[in-house]
Structure formats: C-alpha cells, structure tokens
Design a protein around this nucleic acid. Structure first.
Lengths: 222, 222
DNA sequence: TATACTGTAGAACGAACGTTCGAACTATGG
DNA sequence: CCATAGTTCGAACGTTCGTTCTACAGTATA
C-alpha cells in the first residue's frame, strides 16, 4: 500500500494547527498554509495554481501532496483555522463584562483587530466562501453560523436592555458588511489602526441602532 | 485577412449596449452578456470556462469569439455596463432635491434598488473587481472612483450643513460595506424589498453619523 | 444570379491544470 | 549498520483551459 501519512493516520490529531502543534509535520504544514494564504489573497482560489502554491512555499509540486490531499482541503484548513481562532478569541473577550454596549464594542474591536492583523487570511475567508462544497463547506458554514449566532445574541441583549426596536438581523449583517468590506479599502497610513477604526465604526453603529430625534422622517424618499 | 467584425470596425459605436442599441449584433451580444452574468455569478470569473459560457448562451464555443475577443473583455463589458448604469441613474435622481439628508436617502435607495434588481451583475462587479488588469481594469476603476466621489460629496454636504465631525471617508466606505455585503445574505422573503431595507439601513447610517448623547463614551473598550 | 459580408460551429492548437507514481533521500531507533 | 518510517521530488498522467483556423450557411445588395 505505502499510504502517505496524511491519509494513513486516520484518527490521531492530524491537522492540529490550532493548539500548540509541535511535530515537524505540523510545523511544516503551518508554514505552507501561511504561504498559501498570500497566494490565495493575491490570485484567488481558482486563480492560484498548485504550482504557484508550491513555488511560494519553496517546495516541489508533488511534495505538497504529502501534507494535504487536495487543493480544496488546503483552502479548508486555512478557513477553518482562521474562523475558529476568531470565534475562540471573541468568546474569551466577551467574558470580561456583562455591559451590553461594552460587549458590542468588544465584538467590533475584536473583529477589526483580527481582521487587520490577518487581513490576507480574512480576505480569503470572506472572498472564497462559496467555493468549498459538501463536507468541507458544511463545516466552515457551521463555524460561520456559530459566529453569527454569538453576535446576534450580543445585539439582542443590547436591544432588550435599552428597549429598542431595530431588526437584529439587519443590524448584525449590516455591521458585518461594514467591517468585512474594509479589505477592499483599508490603508493603514490614512485609516489608522484597529482601535481607531473600531471606535469610528462603533460610534456610527451604536448611535445608529438607538432611538433619537435626530432622524427626520420627513426627509425620507417616498 | 478576413478580420472578424469585432476587430475590423475600429471606430463606430461597437459595444454600444448602454443606449438603445438596435443592431442585430448588439442585441445578440446583450443576450450573451446576460447569460454570462449568471454563470460568473455562480462560478466566479476564473471558475467559469468559456465552454460554460457558450453552453449558457446556446452558442458554440467558437461562435462566441465573433462577439468579443477574449474572456477578459467579456467581463469588462459586463462591469462597465453595470457600473455606468448605476452612476447614471444616481446622477439623475440626485438632481431632484438639494436637501442633504434626502440626498443620502436617495443614494442608499438607488444603490439598494439597483443592487437587488441586478443582484447577479452587482455580485460580479463587487466580487471580481481585481481580476481586470491594465486598460480594462483602469477604466472600471475610474468608474468606481467616480461613483465614490459622488457619494463622498453627498456626505460632505450633509456634514457641512449639520456641522458634524465624522470622517467622510470612513463613513462612505462603511456605508458601501453595509450595502454591498447584502449579496451574501439577502433573502427577499425575510428582508423585504429595497425600500424597506434602505429605510432600515438609512436609519442606522443617518443616526450613526450625527451627534447624539446616546453613545456612552464610558462603555468604550480601553 | 453573382458578390460580399455577417454569423456559426467542428476540430484542433499549445499551454496549463490538479493529481499520481515510484524512486531516492534523510532521520530515527534497535 | 541495517531496517524502517518519514519526507522530497522529477516525470508523467489524463483533462480542461482560452483561443484560433477554416469551412460553410444565411442574408442583403447589385
């Protein structure tokens, strides 16, 4: 048979990556993933060839297949790692307070901090979110739903605490839009760091979902 | 020689499409573009093959090349048409009033109306915005800057009229994010039509960029 | 009816794609 | 020092890619 290790070690913590993975295999794989992120970031998933990816990692084309069985799995590993890390981080930080507004601020800051620190991975996550099919796609979509659920709950708490009437769904999805879109325009020199940006977006969003006489209904179209 | 018409008619209003294009050639091309939008929408630019595109238009692979000289040009024609139409529509509608807030409402409604009515084309425009290089890319980017400029001016008017202090850049780009992101989540059955959505987003955004005691600075993180 | 141009498609081009195979290398442990 | 497992890669597989060539049918003009 002579099966490759990636397929033979069926159980075992193959593809650890999240925790303190120590084996030579895991460290090498993590390096490959990091280089692959750069290539996917620049050329897109379909536009990046296995030859591009192997060149970027300084490894032969065939050698890559020792670490993962397909290009699709490579994208899956990147997306899973990125998504589960941001969910994990958010969970930890939200524990620090019960104040509903502060929790929304935390959510925004965490998202933008992670987004800007891992901009390329986050673009690959946002931009290539429909290419994974079947099993891999289902797993990533499940992580996404989990993240969405957490944020929706944070918003619902705020809404209840302040007796507000906005649609939580539209609000949270609008907020995601504001934040995820930055990969198309962010420039550190003119836009500052995550703290500055999250304060600005937080201000807009938090004022936006609260009641206020400031909005003149008369100015509405139709 | 036997040059194809697409390359031989050098001057002339080849690729009219925007205005009331009447020739058999233009009508057929418009049909192909419409079908191509569907395919790009579902598979992405790189993921869609010329064979997919020809199948969708019910035309042979070779026959397509009578209407445009490359796959890249096909994407360019789609993007240019979509973008110049939305810019043109916005220009027309903004003329109807001078009220700064009403103009922002118009901008949002126009964007969402067009976005939802041409959701597939708008996704192709948003999602495949980096694949066009050189000449084609420069032209589309120029249209994008024009649209950005108009929106920035509308926001600046509002800011000046109400003596507000927000960053117009961050505000307009956040607004684009809110609006453009909807292609990832919009469901007509639960989210209603463009008018409803633009009222909700308009409320969030307009309150968000105005001053108000509602935002507790104390709740800020760090 | 002869002439010229427009529109269409079958077949093929070379290049690039994701993936596989087997041989060769290196590291480890008895 | 040999045996074994883990790691690497050149070469090639079959397929699909975007594009082109050529021949031919349709249509309008003269």
């Amino acid at each position: 048979m002579a099966a490759s290790p990636a397929t033979s070690r069926l159980a075992a913590p193959r593809y650890a990556l999240a925790s303190s993975a120590k084996s030579r295999f895991d460290r090498r794989l993590a390096k490959i993933l990091a280089h692959a992120v750069n290539v996917f970031y620049e050329k897109g998933y379909e536009g990046a060839s296995m030859r591009d990816l192997s060149r970027a990692s300084g490894m032969s084309l065939a050698g890559m297949y020792h670490y993962f069985e397909s290009k699709e799995k490579l994208l899956y590993l990147i997306q899973r790692h990125t998504f589960s890390t941001i969910v994990e981080q958010l969970r930890g930080k939200l524990d620090s307070t019960d104040d509903p507004e502060a929790r929304i601020r935390i959510l925004i800051l965490n998202h933008l901090e992670y987004f800007l620190a891992n901009q390329k991975a986050m673009k690959v996550l946002s931009h290539e979110d429909e290419v994974l099919k079947n099993g891999f796609g289902a797993e990533v979509r499940s992580l996404k739903r989990e993240y969405y659920r957490i944020c929706l709950d944070v918003l619902d708490d705020f809404k209840r605490a302040n007796r507000l009437g906005f649609s939580s769904r539209v609000a949270v999805l609008s907020l995601f839009g504001m934040m995820n879109w930055i990969y198309t325009w962010y420039n550190p020199r003119v836009d500052g760091d995550a703290a500055k940006l999250s304060e600005q977006m937080g201000d807009i969003f938090l004022r936006g979902i609260q009641d206020g006489k400031s909005v003149r209904k008369s100015a509405r179209v139709n």
